[in-house]
Amino acid sequence: MTGFLFVTDLDRTLVGDDNALKTLNQQLTDHRQKYGTKIVYATGRSLFLYRQLISQQSLLPPDALITSVGSEIYFNPNEDIFDSEWAEIIAHGWNRSQVISIAGNFSYLTHQPRSEQGLFKISYHLSDSVASVVLPQLKLALHESGLDVKLIYSGGKDLDILPQKADKGLAVEFLRQKWRIDEINTVVCGDSGNDISLFMVENLRGIIVGNAMSELREWHEANPSDIRYISTGKYAAGIIEGLQYFRFILFS
């Protein structure tokens, strides 16, 4: 066996089944020690909310932490400083104040808490009942203002506006290339719409857990892949199932 790059979303993907998480943690720890496997968490949470989560859940220390839907990368989550190289890459063409000004014209958008706003992420709540109307209008308004940005809507309520070059998938590619890990030795795991970018990266193995939201399942059905596995197990149990399928780890 060889080391691999293990990338997973946190809420409702890695976290949700404490017993399965304990089993997975044990296997990943062993694999990391023997083969140098790297662990990356890719979450929509801010660093602040990530720290809240690890105070409540037993998570392994990651080799890198991707937060805020891919707009920040931390190599030491105990420090508040995100990676400057990644920040420089995604900063090109980003105008935060102008995005906020334009979004302010849409009354259905309500700001998420201050802790969830970032230098390269502006986050709102948007009801699913009006999203299909508001999102195209907002996208057009931003485009007509010359702003090249990315809108990520997930969970039927969360809207994140990011620089065009920022998302979870692009952040993983940045790390994979930095660490010189082959595509075929990289696996990504997720459950929701803000994980779609993970599965859009070509040639990466993908695990969609059994409790995945309809938004991700529908995207998968429209964009099938023979290197993407749909688990029947939920949360960490679904990840274990997928890792066995791809033979990254053989569980006893």
Rank of each mutant, 00 (worst) to 15 (best):
T110F: 05
S127I: 08
A141C: 07
G155V: 03
W94D: 05
S127W: 04
Q177N: 15
P77M: 03
V99F: 03
S107K: 14
Y74G: 00
S123E: 05
A64D: 01
I73L: 10
H111K: 11
L151H: 05
T67I: 07
I181R: 04
G118N: 11
Q177K: 12
E85H: 09
C189Y: 11
H111E: 12
N76F: 06
D148C: 05
Q98L: 15
N78P: 00
R96T: 08
G190C: 05
Q177G: 04
N76P: 02
L147K: 07
R96Y: 09
N95T: 09
G146S: 11
A103G: 10
R114D: 15
G93V: 11
L162H: 06
S101V: 01
L162G: 01
Q98I: 06
V69W: 03
V149G: 01
A141G: 12
L140N: 14
L162A: 07
C189F: 10
S107T: 14
R114T: 14
I100Y: 01
Q112S: 06
V187E: 06
L138I: 07
L162F: 03
P136V: 13
K121C: 02
I184F: 11
G169C: 10
P163Q: 05
Q117Y: 06
L175F: 05
I90Q: 02
I152W: 00
D80V: 11
G169I: 03
D182P: 02
S127E: 15
P62M: 08
K178A: 00
L147F: 10
D182E: 11
W179P: 00
L151G: 08
